[in-house]
Design a protein around this nucleic acid. Structure first.
Lengths: 210, 210, 210, 210
DNA sequence: AATGAATGAGGCTTCATTCAT
DNA sequence: AATGAATGAAGCCTCATTCAT
């Protein structure tokens, strides 16, 4: 009893994330410019003015959406990479599965689409995203590729470029889901999609016997 | 005689596409909502009012940008597919090279980013784009995959899903170029990227010898 | 006993004037409309809500600022006028000195600027100020002028108009101090200013010898 | 006929001053913060948006009001001072009469009140006003005082301070007119006011015979 | 009595759209 | 055909005011 904080206080602390979450949905759906703060407020169940108790401006809210959505990500992946003991390809599988569970299946899955759509209008934020998300994600994939090439499991490929090619289908999957997937006839089954991607990777990366 | 027209007339007929071209750049850079018609007009060297002589509204201009950008595409690809006589993988290579030459290297390369960013705000346009671009592009890839599977050159894979996985890296390449590529440290070399992608595909699609 | 009250109680009773005092500074500095209650509260060291325990509205606070600032004024001047026995000009000097000590040198000195800036937005308040401050101040000056004219010390001048001319430089002095005096090069020395003003008055009012 | 520009053009050129004039009235009446641009637009007979064709912001409009109101002033005064040949006091009279005709009786007469009310919120503008109006006005009065003191017509007084005392009643007259004069019982007759002021000055400045 | 989170009306500003020239 | 001045709806943001604690 005594260690339960009063609801008002709990609300105060929870508010910023509630507002960010509401904003994320709308930014992903409509883009930054086309999203009205009134709609964000309404979705969060507060008034327009309340947003300004927690964020200085629409732009500050946008930054918080990205930064907050980015925080919980990519930490576990780094641990997975450092602890892994099996084959390089198994590591790759684990990393992609982890990303899928932590991002692809959560509400943060809309962030890649949002960042690609808005990065030119928010260059500093794009840079921040690159440093804190993309670079770290790529490093994880790099560790698997390097391990596989070093052990002879994978063929010799340019690491940096291969990273791009490996992660592109996965990014495209979530981008697609938050964009064209609203059209008829464009449904994609993520399970099957990932299965095919992994199949192609498994065989594509495998060192060709001489 | 036939290919010479008076400059005045040529100008008049060319206006709409000049305006569309100017608009494409800005829509790709800023998104639909954040693009100001004043800037479009200025880039095209006309006044704001002139835009309305050719387009009913900002939305109509946007549709024209997409539709104009779509017209010259994918026609040649279909001919390539129907005339092809070599291996299935060679066909795939030709198709991707054709797309790259006709879209990836032109100013239309920004359209995929634009469509993913705006499709939810323009569902009918997204549907149109899907029917006229995506479906046809996928059909071309499908014809190569089907041919390869039928001949035993490719392993058996779900066609629709494999199409997705095959084209995703290419779409991602151009999306990247018009978004995060503005950041430092994010440069991608398209030649090398395509080379790696094709390598992985070649080996990944190849039927595993029993 | 009589002059010691418990701090708690003193505080409670002192609150309204503390708040008025804080508000006066800001109203003088920024004007009524541009002053934010949040700033008033902060300067008084209370929360915004507390203001509403003592004042019904921003407008009520403004009225209180003026009315509070008006209370301690002009009482002594009337006594001075009624008790005076020397020359008319000496009375005039005493009255102006009294005003300067009671208003010109206190924090109430900003009120003339504030009233001139806001009187049109608060006509009833302006009327109140006129009745309770201006009219009484003018009456004091009038008594000195009348006495001097009656005794032949001063030349014959229209009393009402002369009052205006006599007090204008003094009002202007405090208005100036709270407005343009923030600029470089606009410093005025009140002592010297008053000395010159009195010199001009002494000679200007003196009846010309025939 | 041929040298009459088309109405549209004439309007375009006349607009800024029309808007400034409308804004001056309202700024003087209500102050900067309390004046709504919608009211300014309405008084000028245009829409709110039109203001932004000519002024970047409310603050820019305010600056223009002051700067435009300042331009036509004080030029003639300087010529009067340089051409004058009579007594010093006659010069002083001419200068004050000129100021009255050029400012005191025009719609610019509200500017002194406006500047005193807002100078603290617009320090650079206040500085500009000081440099371009106040300093020049004071210099004109200074030239009359110096001439009178040098010739023995005036008593010896500190020039700078005397300037203040000489112009204060005149400034106060227009400030009063645009502020408290809205109250009952506060009417001032400018002619009589100036007459008394000049009488006091004439006798007050005059060198006392030894 | 005091707080400060929350509200929502209202103002400044932008920009798609219109229309007289 | 082309212009660009003008409009006014709509969005961001501020801040006086309220009220649960």
């Amino acid at each position: 009893m005594s260690n339960i904080s009063p609801p008002r206080k709990r609300r105060k602390e929870a508010r910023p994330s509630e507002l960010s979450a509401a904003a994320l949905d709308l930014f992903v759906e409509k883009g930054f410019a086309a999203t009205r703060l009134e709609d964000v407020a309404q979705r969060a169940g507060v008034s327009k003015g309340t947003l300004y108790l927690y964020f200085d401006s629409k732009e500050a809210l946008f930054k918080s959406v990205i930064e907050d959505g980015v925080v919980p990500v990519l930490v576990e992946g780094e641990e997975i990479a450092s602890r892994h003991e099996g084959s390089a390809f198994e590591l790759l599988e684990k990393l992609l599965a982890n990303w899928w569970a932590g991002i692809g299946e959560t509400s943060f899955a809309g962030i890649p689409k949002l960042m690609t759509a808005e990065s030119r209008n928010f260059p500093e934020l794009a840079q921040f995203y690159y440093e804190n998300v993309i670079r770290r994600g790529r490093a994880q994939v790099a560790s698997a590729l390097e391990r596989g090439i070093a052990s002879g499991e994978f063929r010799k490929l340019d690491i940096e470029t291969t990273i791009d090619v490996v992660i592109a289908p996965i990014l495209m999957l979530v981008i697609w889901r938050y964009s064209m997937a609203c059209c008829q006839g464009t449904q994609v089954d993520p399970q099957q999609y990932m299965a095919v991607h992994l199949t192609l990777l498994r065989e594509g990366l495998k060192r060709t016997q001489v």
